[in-house]
Nucleic acid binder design. Structure first.
Length: 119
DNA sequence: ATTCTGACGTGGG
DNA sequence: CCCCACGCCAGAA
């Protein structure tokens, strides 16, 4: 049986991970937010919370991925610097009714959306 | 191959 | 609440 040239065929992990993150991000309801770790955990990569942020980095250019609804566990807009402009991320959130003060989301525990719990 | 960094999370003090 | 150190995985130089 010759199958040796392709190292993968049953387990794909890499590019798909990014798409996974996008899928979950798109599921985030309007006016709600979630954290990188929660998404990572939902995907089964709880230890790769950083990779979620990295995936968001690749989402730069995609308008179908609401990356502005994804913040860190403290509810701070850690990645606002990666958006266009200086406060674009905050603008988008406030546009949805999310109150943001000093890069800190107010009532974060209330508007928090956990994919593990909601899905 | 190695090294460093990064949109994070957790635990201890 | 704050600060510090470690782990973690993927990609770039």
């Amino acid at each position: 049986m010759g199958l040796k040239d392709k190292k993968n065929t049953g387990s794909e992990s890499g590019t798909n991970f990014f798409e996974r993150v996008y899928e979950v991000a798109k599921l985030i309801p309007y006016g709600r937010v979630t954290s990188y770790g929660s998404i990572a955990k939902y995907l089964g990569a709880a230890r790769s919370a950083r990779m979620v942020g990295w995936a968001m980095n690749a989402c730069n250019g995609r308008d179908d991925v609401p990356a502005h609804r994804v913040v860190n566990r403290k509810g701070i807009l850690t990645g606002k610097h990666h958006f266009q402009g200086t406060n674009l991320m905050q603008q988008l959130l406030e546009n949805e009714g999310v109150v943001v003060i000093e890069n800190q989301i107010q009532d974060f525990d209330i508007i928090f959306w956990d994919p593990m719990q909601e899905l």
